[in-house]
Design a protein around this nucleic acid. Structure first.
Lengths: 188, 188
DNA sequence: TACTAAACCAAACGCCTGTTAGCAAATTTG
DNA sequence: CAAATTTGCTAACAGGCGTTTGGTTTAGTA
């Protein structure tokens, strides 16, 4: 792993636990055992790190979802697959997921606009699945926007408590969440 | 409304949109049309504001939940009531809810510890409801911790998109979320 | 060994931060 | 009206911020 990647990784974990604005370059340097100025041999700026983390995660979400998108299965099954893909990315690197989900707002233009659009596209793809399920009658709900919002909400809190050494694997979690959302507490 | 309350309110909306660390006292003063130093005739410190917002919201959540706690209804119905209470608090003041949910980590000890404990108690009360539902066989699920985590996740994203002028009332939202979580997408 | 390139340090830069002090209006109260 | 309190301003403080600069050490290569 290159020094630059190491910086990104340590910064990611600090950004997640303290927040982007509350993490200083001197904190970051201390964690790496070097001086703050030395960081600038490897990176362009503080926001430079944030940009790389955010867009790398965005790419991973898109890549995982692309494998689901064009499968020829019923909407409910496709939603299960999408949830599993999302959970897989989320749990593979919880600190980066946390930064992606909570610190993106510290991006400045034009990165911020680009980020917004990517997220909209991702959500729109999910809404497509729900709309298809409504059309076939498989889903009884009518408001696909609300459903996707709630779906993502319940998934995106995962990085707050997920621990790789816990007893549930990412696939276990995905199955649990799929059952809960599709069948509900009563018919789980 | 006293000047102090006005400061808290404006600060709350800034803390929510920019984050606590990224909001300066000079920003806040500018928004109020006064100088930064003048703020200190009314408040003790920047974190002083954050503390007041966070603990006031915590009190509101507890107060709303207390009215549900001891009602003699089946667990599933009690959960519905708890969800409705939670949503009501969340939508009554979305900026304050946002600060409560995302900025509490900038509290320092001993406030931080006290905050953690209050949240734990709140979550534990919710787990009690789910456990009761499992015991009566009303809920088919086994992991009450996971359920409550997911439940709160889906509720606590609300402040990000809820607009009072929207077409759904807080009660509509609560009913939608209750149906989704209890019955699922398929049996909604 | 001699050369190169990457990694790092020490010091400083200009600016921004929360907060304080002393004083002056303005408003409220008796 | 007079006293007291609230509210605000100006100016400054001490320290922290991201970043730059110029020079030095370290590691790799021929």
């Amino acid at each position: 792993m290159s020094r630059k990647e190491q910086i990104d990784q340590v910064a990611t974990s600090l950004f997640k636990s303290r927040g982007f604005a509350a993490t200083t370059m001197r904190d970051l340097a201390l964690e790496l055992g070097i001086e703050a100025g030395s960081l600038y041999s490897h990176i362009k700026s503080k926001e430079d790190i944030l940009q790389r983390v955010c867009f790398k995660m965005a790419d991973e979400f898109n890549a995982a979802f692309d494998e689901v998108k064009n499968q020829d299965v019923p909407p409910s099954e496709k939603l299960r697959l999408a949830i599993a893909a999302h959970v897989r990315v989320l749990t593979k690197n919880p600190p980066a997921a946390g930064v992606f989900l909570n610190e993106w707002r510290h991006l400045s233009e034009p990165s911020l606009g680009k980020f917004h659009e990517m997220r909209f596209q991702y959500e729109e793809s999910l809404r497509d699945i729900v709309r298809a399920g409504i059309a076939t009658g498989e889903f009884k709900v009518t408001d696909e926007k609300f459903v996707v919002l709630t779906l993502l909400s319940s998934l995106n809190w995962l990085h707050m408590w997920y621990k790789p050494e816990g007893k549930m694997s990412p696939d276990d979690i995905a199955e649990f969440l799929s059952n809960l959302l599709l069948n509900g507490l009563k018919n789980f």
